[in-house]
């Protein structure tokens, strides 16, 4: 227990403190940007983007090795991830625009196919560069082991930038999430704003890959906003509550995970967030289940009395 306390108060060592701080910033950015996605009902688009990052990571590694590097530069790998995540996003948009298929089919198709391509490339790397690719698998489930100081700073900086952009674009994004047609009549370029919304989510996804892993990163974008929704009916409030839940959950998760080797960072963060979601769903006064059940029972009595 004292180990956890140490980690929470940033006493568990310089690296752990850095990782926890980076995670917290990323969590706030993810919660805030995820809110707009949730309101736009496109939460799972980011899942496809995350899975679509895998081929980019492996390709970036291969390119860096081909140019004589060790292939370990996090910035380089994340650039690859961003590029192929972006291609995945374009593929989804193309499928929904050009064909009769609905968005859910496009999401699933891109997710499965890009991830499949990533796995093919991964087996290729394993046969070509036996031993030297160590670390790429870490992107599947996230790993803070061997994380460098620069890596943690990169994550923290990235989170801060995304957060700032969210704040700058909060009004147009709220409008588009609520009523794209109306936003268009006001002269907003809804396509560009939609793209920016997805771009921010993609940025969070890519930045968080090393920490949380591509299978689970989507949880950071979905769970805090979904939990925040129970507490409020107002978008502006929801964004900040989601940011708060995301930041606190990520910080707590990273701190707990730093106390023992068998506590992988990504899963712990997700489980902490899930606990927050469960509590919110049950007890939040605005839209929680308990409050709703009480109101429903009261209405039932009233109606049966014929009031």
């Amino acid at each position: 227990m004292s180990l956890v306390l140490d980690a929470l108060t940033l006493q568990a060592g310089y690296n752990a403190a850095l990782v926890a701080t980076g995670a917290a910033l990323l969590g706030v950015a993810a919660g805030a940007s995820g809110s707009f996605l949730l309101l736009r009902k496109r939460a799972l688009v980011s899942d496809a983007v995350a899975h679509a990052a895998l081929p980019g990571i492996v390709l970036a590694f291969m390119v860096m090795v081909a140019f004589g590097g060790a292939g370990r530069s996090l910035a380089g790998l994340l650039l690859g991830a961003a590029l192929s995540g972006g291609v995945g996003l374009l593929a989804m948009t193309w499928i929904t625009k050009r064909t009769r298929l609905a968005e859910d089919a496009a999401i699933g198709a891109v997710l499965g196919v890009f991830f499949g391509a990533g796995v093919v490339l991964l087996t290729l790397v394993q046969t070509m560069q036996a031993g030297r690719q160590a670390g790429l698998e870490g992107f599947l489930l996230g790993s803070t082991a061997g994380m460098l100081r620069e890596d943690a700073i990169l994550i923290a900086l990235g989170g801060a930038v995304v957060l700032a952009l969210c704040w700058l674009m909060r009004r147009p994004m709220t409008l588009v999430a609520f009523d794209p047609a109306y936003a268009a009549t006001l002269g907003y370029n809804t396509r560009a704003i939609d793209l920016a919304m997805m771009g921010l989510a993609t940025a969070v996804t890519v930045i968080g890959l090393k920490l949380v892993g591509l299978v689970l990163i989507v949880a950071l974008l979905i769970i805090p906003p979904a939990a925040a929704r129970f507490w409020t009916e107002r978008t502006g409030v929801m964004v900040w509550v989601a940011g708060g839940i995301g930041g606190a959950g990520a910080y707590l998760g990273a701190a707990i995970s730093a106390t023992a080797p068998a506590l992988p960072t990504g899963p712990i963060i997700v489980l902490v967030l899930a606990a927050g979601f469960t509590l919110s769903m049950l007890f939040a006064p605005a839209r929680g289940i308990l409050g709703g059940a009480l109101r429903h029972a009261r209405l039932r009595r009233q109606m049966q009395r014929g009031e």
Binding site: A43, A219, I268
Partner: peptide
């Protein structure tokens, strides 16, 4: 998204 990430984690 909430359910499958939590269970996977």
């Amino acid at each position: 998204g909430v359910v499958f990430t939590t269970m996977f984690a």
